[in-house]
Design a protein around this nucleic acid. Structure first.
Length: 576
RNA sequence: CGGGACGUAGCGCAGUCUGGCAGCGCACCUGCCUUGGGAGCAGGGGGUCGGAGGUUCAAAUCCUCUCGUCCCGACCA
């Protein structure tokens, strides 16, 4: 492609809306433009990058035995009512009516549609397994779209669905997808982790997120330094090192109430008593489908709501607003404690080891000091309820956990028979028995993958594309358009790239060199070739890798080194 | 949904407090000049100041409503 002919509007200045690096660079590099909140147009350069991700996804999905389809984006409400998600999905589901006042939605996901399709086609176990996928625009009416393509409302997603005869077969479909996903993100040149994720209400431990490591990521993951344990922070556990339960000696004074005016937070209470937050008990109220409960953890720890939910066996869990705690439970927010409470008490497994502790007195303006687990309060519900911290012990081996931030680019899920049962997607097995198909679903955010790649590969000058994702593999900078010898050499070289099938951006614009260098850096083209009058006179062409600081020079009369360098880059790219 | 900020040329912003000619930089067009890291000079085009209503002799500026965007939080398969 000739730069002079390409619609590639690069920006020197960044639109004020852009906060994170990938969003800024994608705007500056002329990849995307915003139309409305969370809704973007893809410009040629941006679309090329998306297509590169899609190409890899297609190759690996097909290799894993999946077949591509394209399902409707607009879906009738009836299907969603049948799966009982029309009422459950909430405001994220974009709904509208057609001219006949019939209800429709714009698909945020396609379990219903694919299951409907399959139930009309599949009758026999002989037709299974089946794995279908599509790459398509989705819409989720996010409460707060942000960060450009990272959390848009309209976005391009690869979503795939597998259908199997039983749980064992479904598990192997799942494992196959897991392997395919690893190949996909490896080929995209990303540093990622496949982490165990919360599997929600559906149960089982068959959900993995693929998380690209990046400090700006919205997700936190814990991983072991020694073994391959890795989990979303929502799900991560650490090995419990049991310590002594410190009971008070016989002579130790009973708990004592202390006036603590204006001490509603752990930090304020710690400052008042001149002690560490770890010696204070954090008491929180949660509400679930099973009613209210109180959760107590050491004051320096964060409650993990997913663990609380699991410990309760609840279907949903939320933190009630303070007004409800005050009105309905008559508990003083800011001064709550477990002595005593009328609602169920959940105690973190670390609490019995705290010794003499400080907690709220259930009376405004007062805390209790010298409180002991076992003497002053107790509970049968002791569980792991806190978020893991870096440096804690791995639950699987003797390694230590580290915490990283990352961007969720893929999520695979074993669905079981949730949808097949609701939508009656059944088949006859070998014994003539009717059975529900066992399903799995597998998503990849295409645009988010591009954004994540940029988030992980950039410097102060712009994007540094992994070779596989780079829209152009080579930028050819002609610095002396008016010099006939230089230009004719560049033209010849440009044609050579084209005939070799290498995607090249030939900067033939009538611009000063500085402009061309800046744009080449911004666009993140892996290899940059520069030819000007001076180099031509010396018989050399400058060759620079975007990733490296130093440029090299190759002789004009023998470009073999150039072709082998490109072959190297390409080979490195197709590693799996 | 709660809190905060913003909306003036394609982009980045000043002007708003204290009402009185619509501004600056970049980008764009023309010409000259320049050509190894976003040059220089000269000339030029481009605005319902987000929208509606109100106050006033006079509104980008003050008041009311409204729409949109961003940030923090809550929420969320």
């Amino acid at each position: 492609m000739r730069f002079s002919r390409m619609h590639l509007p690069t920006l020197k200045e960044v639109p004020a809306e852009a906060e994170v690096i990938s969003h800024r660079l994608m705007l500056r590099a002329g990849m995307i433009r915003r139309l409305a909140a969370g809704i973007y147009s893809y410009l040629p350069f941006g679309l090329m990058a998306l297509r590169n991700v899609e190409k890899i996804v297609r190759q690996e999905m097909n290799r894993a035995g999946a077949q591509e389809v394209l399902l409707p984006a607009v879906q009738p409400a009836e299907l969603w009512q049948e799966s009982e998600r029309w009422d459950f999905y909430g405001k994220e589901l974009l709904r509208f009516k057609d001219r006949h006042q019939r209800n429709f939605c714009f698909g945020p996901t396609h379990e219903e549609v694919i299951t409907d399709l399959i139930r009309h086609e599949i009758r026999s176990y002989r037709q299974l397994p089946l794995n279908l996928y599509q790459i398509q625009t989705k819409f989720r009416d996010e409460i707060r779209p942000r960060f450009g393509l990272m959390r848009g409302r309209e976005f391009i997603m690869k979503d795939g669905y597998s259908f199997d005869v039983d749980d064992t077969a479904a598990t192997s479909s799942y494992q196959e997808m897991r392997a395919a996903y690893s190949r996909i993100f490896t080929r995209c040149g990303l540093d990622f982790r496949a982490v165990e994720a919360d599997s929600g209400a559906i149960g089982g431990n068959f959900s993995h997120e693929f998380v690209v490591l990046a400090d700006s990521g919205e997700d936190a993951i814990a991983s072991c330094s020694k073994c391959d344990y890795a989990a979303n922070i929502e799900k991560a556990q650490s090995r419990f090192i049991a310590g002594d339960v410190s009971l008070p000696d016989a002579g130790v004074a009973p708990a004592e109430a202390v006036a603590t005016p204006d001490c509603e937070s752990i930090a304020e209470v710690a400052a008042f008593f001149q002690t560490a937050p770890a010696n204070i008990l954090k008491s929180m109220i949660f509400e679930s489908d099973l009613g209210f409960c109180m959760v107590v953890v050491p004051g320096d720890r964060e409650v993990n709501e997913f663990k609380v939910k699991a410990a309760l066996g609840a279907n949903w869990l939320e933190v009630p607003p303070p007004a409800r705690i005050i009105d309905e439970l008559e508990l003083p927010v800011g001064y709550m404690g477990p002595l005593p409470v009328k609602i169920p008490l959940l105690v973190d497994r670390l609490v019995p080891q705290m010794g003499a502790l400080i907690c709220g007195a259930n009376r405004y303006g007062y805390h209790l000091r010298g409180v002991y687990w076992g003497r002053d309060f107790t509970s049968e519900q002791i569980a792991d309820l806190v978020q893991v911290r870096a440096g804690e012990a791995c639950p699987r081996c003797d390694g230590l956990l580290q915490i990283d931030r990352g961007i969720e680019v893929g999520h695979i899920f074993k669905l079981g028979t949730k949808y097949s049962e609701k939508l009656n997607a059944v088949f006859l097995d070998q014994d003539g028995q009717e059975k529900a198909m066992v399903m799995g679903c597998y998503g990849i955010g295409i645009g988010r993958t591009v954004a994540a790649a940029i988030e992980q590969n950039y410097d102060e000058n712009g994007i540094i594309f992994p070779y596989a994702l780079a829209p152009f593999k080579v930028a050819l900078l002609n610095l002396d358009l008016k010099n006939e010898a230089v230009t004719s050499f560049c033209e010849k070289l440009y044609q050579e790239f084209l005939s070799r099938g290498i995607n090249v951006l030939y900067d033939d614009r009538n611009e000063r060199p500085g402009v061309k260098f800046k744009d080449a850096d911004l666009l993140g083209t892996p290899l940059r070739l520069t030819l000007g009058r001076k180099g031509f006179k010396r018989g050399v062409i400058e060759v620079k890798l975007r990733r490296e600081a130093e440029a090299r020079e190759f002789p004009l009369e023998n470009l073999e080194p150039l072709w082998s360098l490109l072959a190297e880059l390409q080979a490195d790219d197709s590693r799996i």
